[in-house]
Design a protein around this nucleic acid. Structure first.
Lengths: 237, 237
DNA sequence: TAGTGGTCTAGACCACCAG
DNA sequence: TGGTGGTCTAGACCACTAT
């Protein structure tokens, strides 16, 4: 042994998937042609058909193969992989970079609900609604600006929370579990308050993530996060 | 029958996954507790253990369960699902909305490479580099602005292509297959040319997608797409 | 109609790790 | 060290669709 083994798992199907990728890359399996069927490959590789199926299924998922019953498995002519971006919690995002996470409440209180938020929350009546403005820090530097609306009709307890030391997200996670959310991403110009909070010029371009959270058919909260100028999300894998 | 059956597939494991989700939602399996092991559930549900494993594996992937050998399977206390955004081809993105896709070249030619593009392409020598400016239309309306750089050192054929009727992406897909790319997303302000192409005011906030494509260790192209103001990406699922 | 992939089962062995 | 999940095999039946 020339060195310590770095955690070898060697799932069989993953190995076979890699071998198949190589054959495609090296044109042993040319674009547009049909490759041997599962039974043949299973015999050639000395594994069961299910294992071959998993390996090829992975490549189909990646867009390298096109599999159809009866027709067999073909190498696609022009593979085009979609890029995928994942967004979790701000706190995790910061801590993953190794920096210290910080939270600062700027303002909190009941507030009139503007039109666009009303639409997002699907509000028709006049419930009491909490608005929290805050910012998130990364290693002491401004990282993101948060404008949060919480529907008091769905979560009345939220109207009496002290938001100075606890971010809305963490409170909601602890108190309103098993929700679902729709999330969207867009670009916005910084306004007077967000630019002050982020320490940038007014009129800067900001990446803005919006999330509306639902508990059954009742809206819980709508939040807009504006990342500091220059923030970049990278595609995974 | 009261109506036509709408394509029922009913994979067993998917059905079981749904049942498990229900039990978690309804607190039959309470947060933080350990659920019955695979063998038990297999017997209860009258299926094989592998099928149970697939179903629970899916929920673990979704972040609802935490599975560990010997320790068993636990319901996580505070599930937090990451949002995921997928980006494919502009053309597909437009056509999926049912609108007609259009492409217009604005300018194409060899061009001096600015610093930030040079970095992205990992260029150290002085290869000939093609720049193409173009816009993409959706139902006749401006949809996205494209600034494309193609590394003539890697793809010399690209220096002699007529880009008026063929978008760089489609040409590259046909001529340089089996590449990989890194993709990022950020916000940018519209400049004089992009605002003219998109029909918006200068200084608008634009969602910008950048992609650098590699063939082995050689960079092929770098492209920045700026979507028209107000463009919004939605999380899938 | 026949050949292909898609899924399920029963059984087995192994890797992990709480006890 | 034993119980748990993770993976593989062999065999089976089914769904789809090219011919």
């Amino acid at each position: 042994m020339t060195g310590p083994e770095p955690k070898e798992k060697a799932k069989v199907w993953a190995t076979l998937a890699e071998e198949a990728r190589r054959r495609i890359r090296d044109r042993e399996w040319a674009p547009g042609t049909t490759i041997p069927n599962e039974a043949t490959l299973a015999q050639e590789w000395g594994v069961s058909r299910v294992t071959v199926s998993r390996a090829l299924g992975k490549l189909a998922e990646e867009g390298l193969l096109d599999r159809r019953r009866r027709a067999g498995t073909r190498v696609v002519e022009r593979p085009q992989r979609a890029a995928s971006f994942e967004v979790g919690l701000i706190r995790d995002e910061v801590e993953r970079t190794g920096r210290r996470y910080g939270y600062e409440m700027i303002e909190a209180g009941e507030h009139q609900v503007p039109e666009h938020v009303r639409d997002r929350l699907g509000i028709t009546t006049q419930p009491r609604v909490m608005r929290i403005l805050a910012r998130h820090l990364s290693g002491g530097e401004p990282f993101a600006w948060e404008e949060r609306w919480i529907n008091g009709g769905t979560v009345p307890e939220a109207l009496d929370v002290d938001w100075r030391h606890q971010s809305p997200n963490e409170w909601l996670l602890h108190n309103v579990a098993y929700t679902w959310a729709d999330v969207s991403l867009t670009a916005a110009l910084s306004g007077p308050r967000s630019s002050r909070a982020l320490g940038c010029e007014e009129g800067s371009a900001l990446l803005m993530l919006e999330r509306t959270t639902w508990l059954g058919k009742w809206s819980v909260t709508h939040v807009a996060y504006c990342y500091a100028p220059g923030h970049r999300m990278w595609s995974r894998s």
